[in-house]
């Protein structure tokens, strides 16, 4: 208690009323009742002027003490009421957060795009420059330049979609080899890759008439099968994991010599042998040293340089990477299927 002398009854009542004020409005009424222009305390203070000096000083001090007490009490009660009000409000705002969240409207990338990017990424890191090449290709680029003259039986391996002559839908990405070599104008070393659609008249569980291929090409002095083996192993391990193994088998492609089929240890059973691979090995890609005639068609001297190339089916990578049994769903565009890949993508 401030001031001198005993508190008068009205002041005691005032402090009790303030402490009991139930609402902000009631509190305001009390403030007016005591501190307003017509208020009790205001009146008491005003009445001081009629008192003798000595008494006025003592009473003045006492009244100022009352004023401070009342103001403090008002402030304290106001704060208490505000807190109570906020608590009430927060209680009233309670939400049922067991209701489901609202999902963000996010889209998703097609698995073919995912795998394409994955492969482009590893090729870039291995120093391959990426480029594109036409899908509507001339027979010369698609066949002749790749050592498949018109009567060559190997041309029958490629069941071709024909357009107005001389154009075909490219049956493989290999024409890009000729285009890349010609654009390089004889520069060494040449290390390029491409990813794009190719077309063959084939349609079953493991073939679609349109499919995406990745192809890599290296030309330099002193290139041999060890370079091919090293690069393919690096790509396979980057995509499927560092414990993958590969195995090369002699094969045949008109535009490579020697040619090799590459098997990798089955990523599904880790090479133990399973329903998909049977033997622990899965045939994944075709490769070989660039045929001298192809180097010549690209403007390089096969007596001076050599090279290797390999081509890989992107859908095949997708099937192995995502554990798919069939190719067809990849091109059905069922959004329920497409949206499942984010949670099942490789890192």
């Amino acid at each position: 208690m401030g001031g001198n002398g005993a508190r008068e009854d009205w002041a005691t009542v005032a402090l009790a009323d303030i402490a009991a004020a139930p609402t902000v409005a009631a509190l305001e009424a009390l403030r007016v009742q005591y501190l307003g222009k017509q208020g009790r305390l205001t009146g008491e203070l005003r009445a001081l002027s009629g008192l003798p000096a000595l008494e006025r000083r003592a009473r003045g001090a006492m009244l100022n003490g009352c004023k401070t007490d009342i103001e403090n009490a008002l402030a304290r009660q106001r704060e208490l009421l505000a807190q109570a009000e906020q608590s009430r409000q927060l209680e009233a705002e309670r939400l049922d957060l067991t209701l489901p969240g609202v999902l963000p409207a996010w889209g998703t990338l097609h698995p073919i795009t995912r795998v394409r990017r994955r492969l482009a990424d590893v090729m870039l890191r291995l120093g391959f420059t990426l480029r594109t090449a036409p899908e509507l290709e001339t027979e010369w680029y698609n066949f002749e330049a790749l050592n498949m003259p018109a009567d060559h039986p190997a041309r029958e391996m490629h069941d071709t979609f024909y357009l107005e002559a001389p154009y075909v839908l490219r049956t493989h990405t290999s024409p890009f080899q000729i285009r890349a070599m010609r654009d390089a104008g004889g520069d060494l070393p040449l290390r390029v890759a491409t990813l794009g659609f190719t077309y063959r008249r084939d349609d079953d569980a493991t073939h679609t008439p349109q499919f995406m291929q990745m192809e890599g090409l290296v030309v330099d002095r002193g290139i041999g099968l060890p370079d091919l083996k090293g690069v393919v192993l690096a790509v396979v391990r980057d995509v499927f994991g560092p414990t993958e193994r590969i195995r090369l088998r002699p094969s045949f492609f008109p535009f490579t010599e020697p040619s090799a089929e590459v098997d990798m240890s089955c990523p599904l059973c880790l090479g133990a042998g399973c329903r998909v691979c049977h033997t622990g090995w899965i045939e994944i890609l075709g490769s070989g040293l660039v045929h001298p005639r192809v180097l010549e068609a690209g403007g390089y001297d096969p007596g001076e340089v050599s090279g290797f190339a390999f081509g890989w089916g992107v859908e095949r990578v997708a099937m192995l990477l995502y554990g798919l049994d069939e190719l067809r769903p990849l091109y059905q565009n069922d959004v329920r299927f497409l949206q499942a890949f984010d949670a099942w993508d490789s890192l």
Partner: peptide
């Protein structure tokens, strides 16, 4: 190679390194 076997071929990365350049359109 057919007679000796592909398994006898060692693996290595090509000797001369090149910077890979991305395709701007892609």
């Amino acid at each position: 190679i057919r007679l000796v076997g592909m398994d006898a071929v060692p693996a290595r990365l090509p000797a001369r390194a090149t910077p890979g350049v991305a395709d701007p359109d892609t």
